[in-house]
Nucleic acid binder design. Structure first.
Lengths: 225, 225
DNA sequence: ATTATCGCTATTGCATACAATCCCATAGAA
DNA sequence: TTCTATGGGATTGTATGCAATAGCGATAAT
């Protein structure tokens, strides 16, 4: 997973621990339900337990792990219902936010084009790296929402999109589904550039519904996890 | 503020610190922009700095405080735009969630009635306690969303409603506005009990729009904070 | 064989000590 | 006066040590 250069190296040890653990969870290296021992993590990351504990508490607040008093933390395991909740909520607000972004005219079109092209390149590569693809996709959506002018909306959606990450969404897409997703991205850029909010909203709605249809099929096949 | 008996006394020191600091922020005791020193907090709460740090990291993840490397944390200060963002987003999804709750028939009608009556009592009391009123209101909305069946939605809205808390919303309501808000609550209970989702959704939309109109007037009068 | 009790071990929770960093004030030079 | 360098104090960041607790296995009694 590409390291998000949010705040550079804000806090050496804590940030290191946070990124490391989060990455392990999102990459599926640590499966849902797995218990995370502070000592193990501390040793493997190369810091003491203190920063690890702080990182874990942050991850707990973000919903990636569960905290149990005097027992430790375990990786949150997601059910089909959780996934459905997230997609339902997303489809309620992300198209709207996309429409706002189009109306605002504040969208960073160049950046969006760059990200869409980069995703094309990843998919076209002989060895498709789904972690990179997922990260690029997340940035693409984040960039759009940033232009909506509603920071709160952007933050909420950022937390919603990280859930499907755990399911390694893209890895289950068929080639046709992957292609359709990429095409949607380019159409989104065009819609945003045109400033037609109804268009932008519609495309985003289609994009999410299409994604949910693909994810749902796979998630139902893999009952609980 | 009424202590939320979520997980009982999950973690003596950390939980104590978390509740204490959070309460101080929501009650306005610590104004926005104020720097929070770990040592001070630790001393006043009666624990060491370690649990205080963990509590602060959790509060940072929840957006109540800002963390700055090697400088400490300061209470997040909210602008009018933040408030507007939150209300806009709320009005997008809470009415929908309320409709879902009505359709589900899972709403705890008795509890909602109890909460609505309790709010009536608080307002009728000679010395209106807005902290208690705010807490009851939060529980009322939370109880409705719980019945929506979308846990994610409930969590998102819970974080959205805590922002206006900082602005001590109810304290600025006129008697008429306060009365209207209470009336809405009872109508919401009736709508939910009837199972008429369109009704429930409409009332909730009116409830939020009405609240925003009141809050906006006051927030605009108090420019930034 | 089953169950209950007790103690051991692994692990978390908390406190304290020390290191690293930033700031601010102060002094000196241009 | 103003700008810069430097040093001291305050504050955060990290590590470590000890206390508390829960889980688990062994042992014994029924």
């Amino acid at each position: 997973m590409i390291s998000t250069p949010d705040v550079a190296d804000e806090g050496r040890a804590v940030e290191l621990a946070y990124r490391s653990i989060r990455s392990q969870i999102l990459s599926g290296e640590q499966a849902g339900g797995q218990w995370l021992r502070e000592s193990e993590l501390a040793a493997s990351i190369g810091v003491s337990r203190t920063p690890v504990r702080e990182a874990l508490r942050q991850l707990a607040a973000e919903g990636l792990v569960r905290h149990e008093r005097n027992r430790g933390v375990q990786v949150q395991s997601w059910t089909f219902a959780d996934l459905e909740d997230a997609y339902t909520l997303r489809s309620r607000i992300e198209p709207w936010g996309c429409g706002l972004a189009a109306a605002s005219g504040q969208a960073d079109i160049a950046e969006l084009k760059r990200l869409a092209d980069a995703m094309d390149a990843v998919v076209a590569a002989p060895h498709q790296d789904f972690d990179v693809l997922t990260e690029l996709n997340s940035r693409f959506h984040g960039t759009i929402l940033q232009a909506s002018g509603n920071e709160r909306l952007r933050a909420v959606l950022a937390s919603l999109v990280q859930l499907p990450f755990v399911w390694r969404t893209f890895a289950h897409y068929s080639p046709a589904e992957l292609q359709r997703s990429l095409t949607h991205h380019h159409e989104l850029v065009d819609a945003l550039e045109s400033g037609n909010s109804a268009w932008a909203e519609s495309v985003m709605r289609a994009h999410i519904q299409s994604a949910w249809t693909s994810v749902r099929r796979e998630a139902q096949a893999t009952p609980e996890q």
